[in-house]
């Protein structure tokens, strides 16, 4: 049979090229849509009107500011309550990161490794409860906290403590992803360790955790970012006590309460950029664990 190699090959190449360009075009458009607000926000946080250092760029039609300044950042940290909020949020998020990770991983370990009565039931209840939005119980939680003196008209640290409890308390319900990961670690490792004389907690600490870095990092990041950006609970529990505000609540109040939006416009942008910084740093530091699987060589392979 006669075969025109050039033609068939060329046809396939061309078709591939066309479909690839189509895909990349769509992806490019999507990424521009997604990244543009961010770039715009960063640019505005450095923007200023010509010859007027504290003049808001609000209402300016251009994306690119005509002049650049760090004044907004200086103002943010010297003239507003923002540093306090920032510190509050950092404390809450770090505390939650530690507590939630511990709760989640312990729960996942137990569900993955132990067989006990009503294990399935507890798993299902956990899964269903986890699907309900958390703010459903907001009112109840507020009154509970008020009852034990952690909400209402109380000191700042108590309110911060209350928030830590809210965020980390229900963390164990999110055990499912970690359980899935633990399930992939060979059970004979546990058994070997148990025969070697390890207790349950030793198996968890010395065998399971070192092998689970990716999922620990994932869980830690998730439990850091959740309180870091949460608005609903924080605003409801903190009410008008601006000394205990988290960044999300504080920044929102600026733009929501302001009579002249322009007054806070660039400050808000600068604050928002500051909020993004720690998450970015955390992610950059920990990302290699996401991709690095380290179970190689454990069992047959």
């Amino acid at each position: 049979m006669d075969y025109d190699f050039k033609k068939t090959n060329g046809g396939m190449k061309r078709r591939k090229a066309i479909s690839k360009s189509a895909i990349y075009t769509i992806l490019t458009i999507l990424s521009i849509c997604w990244i543009l607000p961010l770039i715009w926000l960063i640019l505005q946080s450095f923007g200023m009107e010509p010859d007027a250092p504290y003049q808001s760029t609000y209402g300016s039609p251009d994306i690119l500011p005509s002049h650049y300044t760090v004044n907004w950042y200086v103002k943010l940290f010297t003239e507003t309550e923002f540093p306090t909020w920032y510190l509050n949020t950092l404390i809450i998020s770090l505390a939650c990161m530690v507590l939630s990770t511990f709760f989640t991983l312990s729960m996942a370990y137990v569900m993955s490794r132990f067989r006990f009565k009503s294990r399935k039931t507890i798993q299902n209840i956990g899964l269903i409860l986890g699907m309900f939005p958390g703010f459903m119980s907001m009112v109840a939680i507020y009154y509970i906290f008020k009852g034990i003196g952690l909400a209402g008209n109380v000191e700042n640290w108590k309110q911060i403590l209350a928030l830590i409890m809210v965020y980390s308390g229900s963390a164990a319900l999110g055990y499912y992803v970690s359980k899935g990961f633990f399930d992939t670690v060979s059970k004979s490792l546990d058994e070997a360790a148990r025969i070697d004389g390890a207790t349950n907690s030793q198996v968890f600490r010395k065998i399971m955790l070192p092998l689970s870095k990716p999922i620990i990092v994932y869980t830690a990041l998730m439990s850091f970012t959740a309180p870091w950006g949460d608005f609903i609970f924080a605003s409801f529990i903190l009410k008008e006590n601006s000394g205990a505000y988290t960044v999300a609540v504080g920044l929102y109040r600026w733009i929501a309460m302001a009579e002249i939006p322009a007054q806070w416009y660039n400050l808000f942008a600068a604050g928002a950029v500051c909020v993004a910084v720690p998450i970015t740093i955390l992610f950059l530091l920990l990302q290699r664990y996401f991709v690095e699987g380290i179970t190689g060589g454990a069992v047959k392979g």
Binding site: S188, A192, K300
Partner: peptide, 12 residues
């Protein structure tokens, strides 16, 4: 002491 089919060595 037990030796497992899949060795069960602690990979870390």
């Amino acid at each position: 002491a037990m030796v497992f089919q899949n060795y069960a060595l602690y990979p870390h």
